[in-house]
Nucleic acid binder design. Structure first.
Lengths: 198, 198, 198, 198
DNA sequence: CATGAATGAGCATTCATTCAT
DNA sequence: GATGAATGAATGCTCATTCAT
């Protein structure tokens, strides 16, 4: 299903080279942006030869796409467990936001990479936000069914919440490096009031 | 006091050329993104010779910066009058959002241009959002003083609102081309509930 | 006889503009070299409009040529009177060299301009040195006829003397800004010994 | 210790490409001068692709600098052995001059290249002449200690001799293509008389 | 004569991608 | 698989020169 986004290494050595290329790409793209980043910058950071890049990726675009998916997967894996065990749906939402912000704090390059996807790989960009909004909407729906929030919640509310989260992360975590849980608390309060059952 | 961002034309003919270059740049950058846009693409659209570009701008970066400021100014000039004459501060906010969305609908390129400023001209990018957030915060403050919203409104609330507005504009106006006033109404309701006096 | 190297001004105002363009060109070419100099740099220094340049000169090359001739004329006019009234031919030579060096000290750009003529206007370059060498040879000839120097003086000797003078001027006057008469004295002594009658 | 003036090839093939670029540059710069020379002119002469130029040099300036040093080295290596085995210091000087002139006859471009360094790379220009003059001065010093020339020889004499040599080479070898040893003989006689012990 | 906007040929430089070893 | 030299299309920018006012 779908062409491979990168050629799969067959040896352990190859696996290590591939991983170091992805890490190097995250650093290079995060620091310079897609267009000012260079393949040679990536291979130098990875300690590999220029030509080795093409053993694993077909093009600069390909590694960028692979990186976006790699980071998406890692965020999800970081956020999901943090939401489990919350008393209610909105509590889970707050913990999820806090977990996302904490991840962004450790991986500030994620903002630049996702944002740049708008230009480099619009499909991934849309997919990323549509998937995220859809997950939020599903949780709002569940909350509505339990009477935690008003019943007319829609995708518009999901997008509004996502926009809030993204901008707060940009301003207070990426730029100002503030405490994620503090920001998450204020945001959650606004949301819960804005969506209170009526 | 500050270097000119573009050389000022001294004749009427020059004024026309400068304007057509800015308009052409908005189209070119909006369509192709900064890096895939070319000076010659801009001058061709503007009906000017390649060299004429450099009569008014020092570089590709310079026209981009000028364009960001030009668009900021135009949005502001479009939104400000729409807010006048609202019964209350939150009503003004809703009309302002609707006006912004209407502007974005006519000038969809504004999203790509502002977003790309994060990479091309980070200073303008921050300035744009910080200025916008500050204006929102001032209006919230005024609303608080009149008892229209809770008294502890802060810049965090301003950034949350801005993030909401931006993402709703992206999703429902730029991508889906929906009716701005409808989107603005739902968003405003969320805000007013989330910020209700307590 | 020969095409005009520059268009002749008919009014007093034009005469002033022409003169200021030549002076500005000397400064601009001396400071930046021919290729890095620009017409607009020249007109700006001269306080004239860009277009006015072409009222007096046909091209960048043309003003350079005009400048070389202008400076040649001025050196000659400065050096000639200094040689008059010397007791003998070699004394005249020394005084001439001192006068040339003094001129170069006041107009250091002359070196760069003449040297660059090798590339910009080879004809003027050759002409300049051939004329200068020829004048030296004629004076050596006269000195030989009076028994002041050996009788087999030739153009080789003239070129040797000229090379000496040029390099001493470059090293000690242009670069080190030393006293011209001191340098001229040592050079003259070497010459007179090297050319003593035998 | 000092940045490399050109990137060092790691393979034999690279070594060949680098050499052919330097030779091509000598021809291109010698024929057209620095500013009218083009990188593509150099690579075409070298039989290499345009981009290959930048595998070895950072810029047009860089290859020019490398070329000046390359030629300096080659002249020195050509002249040094010619001076060995002369009966006395002045004899060595004459043989050295003859060797230099012979080299210039085979590599006429050396004049244009060194002369143009005054504008393109003033540091190399000064260095070239200061080094050359210093070598002459040292030999004069040695000659003075053996009583072959007057004892008050100084750097002024060295510069005078160098100026002579350079201009004679220009006039009689580069322009007129005459026999180097004949010119060297006349020049040496002048020098030896001018510097005779007293 | 003066002015300054308009023109476009020309060129250095970058860098993703290919390929020989 | 790894290496790094070779390739060449693409484009930002300069500036002498022209020309309308």
């Amino acid at each position: 299903m779908g062409e491979a986004i990168q050629k799969m290494p067959r040896t352990e050595r190859g696996r290590r080279t591939l991983r170091s290329l992805l890490d190097a790409a995250a650093a290079e793209f995060g620091e310079k942006g897609f267009h000012n980043a260079s393949i040679s910058g990536i291979t130098t950071r990875a300690g590999a030869a220029l030509g080795s890049f093409y053993t694993y990726f077909d093009s600069k675009d390909a590694i960028f796409r692979a990186l976006v998916r790699d980071m998406s997967r890692r965020v999800k894996e970081h956020v999901a467990p943090a939401m489990a065990g919350a008393p209610d749906q909105l509590g889970a939402e707050r913990q999820g936001l806090a977990a996302f912000l904490a991840f962004a704090r450790e991986h500030k390059e994620i903002y630049r990479i996702i944002d740049e996807a708008e230009f480099v790989d619009p499909q991934s960009y849309r997919l990323h936000y549509e998937t995220t909004a859809e997950r939020i909407r599903e949780r709002l729906q569940a909350a509505a069914e339990r009477g935690e929030v008003r019943t007319d919640v829609s995708d518009i509310h999901a997008w509004a919440i996502m926009g809030m989260n993204v901008f707060l992360g940009l301003r207070y975590v990426v730029w100002a490096d503030e405490e994620p849980s503090k920001v998450a608390a204020i945001a959650s309060e606004m949301i819960s009031d804005g969506l209170k059952p009526r």
